[in-house]
Deep mutational scan, measured.
Amino acid sequence: MQRVNMIMAESPGLITICLLGYLLSAECTVFLDHENANKILNRPKRYNSGKLEEFVQGNLERECMEEKCSFEEAREVFENTERTTEFWKQYVDGDQCESNPCLNGGSCKDDINSYECWCPFGFEGKNCELDVTCNIKNGRCEQFCKNSADNKVVCSCTEGYRLAENQKSCEPAVPFPCGRVSVSQTSKLTRAETVFPDVDYVNSTEAETILDNITQSTQSFNDFTRVVGGEDAKPGQFPWQVVLNGKVDAFCGGSIVNEKWIVTAAHCVETGVKITVVAGEHNIEETEHTEQKRNVIRIIPHHNYNAAINKYNHDIALLELDEPLVLNSYVTPICIADKEYTNIFLKFGSGYVSGWGRVFHKGRSALVLQYLRVPLVDRATCLRSTKFTIYNNMFCAGFHEGGRDSCQGDSGGPHVTEVEGTSFLTGIISWGEECAMKGKYGIYTKVSRYVNWIKEKTKLT
């Protein structure tokens, strides 16, 4: 034993070699072989497995989906700052455009905790909710729209109204504003409101030439003092309507412009014939205590009207009353817009006519005020429907199939267009061939041609 100890002390290297040989010859039971080890760690190889990531292109799944990435790591994937920024906006807080917040056709661009709407022409605001041009839906104005110097929408209202708090709607500024039905039992019968379409306001006024200088022999019209197929109006439903009495009662109609003036057809009036105007009328054979009678003290036909040349060209006249009318729910003026808007309103496509005229061709006159909704007829169809001249200051309205029309005794009465609950004068009943005849239409004086003249002559002093 002493000898062994001496050998170990003198030859430590020998001992180490012996131990190493023993270990190498022993069977290893701690580690699995290569094949079995792979069965336990069965993990798919990654895209760049075996390579240094710093030297390969980034992978979106590896960089940002398996674990949260930084902007720089995302930049490695896209290799483009702009594309990385677009991805980053949604990656950080989701897609803010998912709810489609942009209105009126706006395009949404996502941002971090926010979004941006790219608005089409005519709109602005956070969600493109603000109209900035009158060309689109009248700028959301209830009545009139004008573009300011910086191309912003400025709404306005006709006389007797003021802008509401929203700067879009119009509200009454006087007790009985024009064009409004205020009798409670008839307010439910107000005709369907007309909503502004998209309009090209630059070209809204037709490029028409008034044929002022045409000389033409007097034409022989049949029954051209021209509501057939209409309905009984309720008291106060058309408070701007008046009836004219002269040699015979209810020979023509008219509309209240203001307390002192009536507008009617020029062919209705004769110099030297006494005319009485009755406002607030409903049943011409009954006294309903809503009527107001006034005498006409002055007749002003349009300066281009000449019955000797043509009885229905420039067929418009103004009547001055001896005493002002007292405005109330049964006696209310009709609204008159400017030339541009009167023309736009007419193009809405349908209007209402009213009167006490004959209820059928050569038949009896109506006792109760009649009204009828009539569609506008395109000019080409209008011209083809008659052998008589249709001037540019006239328009056609009615039904091709016949059966409904204005008729004798309705002449001078109103053709009105309702705009968001307020009625505007767009025409004056003038003439036609018979009444409600198939293929024939009622012919009306186009008020847009005469609004400046009306307003100039009827100013209240």
Rank of each mutant, 00 (worst) to 15 (best):
S204N: 06
S25Y: 14
G122Y: 03
I210M: 09
Y330V: 05
N258F: 02
C18E: 02
N166P: 02
A337P: 03
K109C: 02
E116C: 02
V377A: 07
D95P: 08
V154W: 10
M437S: 11
K362R: 12
D95F: 06
D322C: 02
C157L: 01
T186Y: 12
R294P: 01
Y330G: 03
I344R: 12
E208P: 11
K457Y: 14
W88R: 15
Y201E: 11
P172E: 05
A279K: 01
C157V: 01
E456F: 07
L19H: 02
E72L: 10
C252R: 00
V368S: 05
I300R: 03
N306K: 11
V199E: 12
G125M: 00
T190S: 15
Y91V: 14
E10D: 15
G106M: 00
T287P: 08
Y22V: 05
T158M: 11
N127G: 02
L52Q: 15
W88Y: 15
I297S: 08
T342H: 03
A380G: 12
N258L: 01
C252S: 00
P235I: 08
K152E: 10
P239F: 01
V419Q: 05
G403D: 15
V269D: 02
N213L: 06
S99Y: 07
S217D: 12
C97R: 00
D338I: 03
V174K: 09
D405V: 05
E82L: 05
G442I: 10
F87C: 04
N166E: 03
I429N: 14
T445C: 03
K234A: 11
E35F: 08
N38M: 07
F121Q: 05
Y352G: 04
L41I: 11
R358T: 13
Y161S: 01
H302A: 03
I334W: 00
T215R: 07
L14R: 03
G58I: 08
F238R: 04
S220Y: 05
Q241I: 11
E98H: 09
V154D: 09
F399A: 08
E286G: 09
C102H: 00
S99F: 09
I443Q: 03
L20G: 02
S448G: 08
V451M: 03
C155N: 00
N328K: 01
E98T: 13
F144C: 00
E208T: 15
T186Q: 14
V368R: 13
A250T: 09
L24M: 11
E259F: 03
I429C: 06
V174P: 01
D223S: 12
K347L: 07
S423W: 15
Y341I: 06
G421F: 03
V199I: 11
G421P: 02
F144G: 01
K126C: 03
D93H: 09
G21I: 15
F196Y: 14
H282L: 12
F251K: 08
V242I: 05
R298C: 03
E320F: 02
N100I: 04
G403P: 15
P197A: 14
S182D: 07
C252A: 02
F87I: 12
T264C: 07
V228D: 07
F31I: 15
L367A: 14
F251S: 09
E285R: 12
R226T: 13
V195Y: 15
K459T: 15
I7R: 14
H34A: 12
Q219T: 11
N5I: 14
M65Y: 13
R294E: 01
T426C: 00
I344Q: 09
R373T: 08
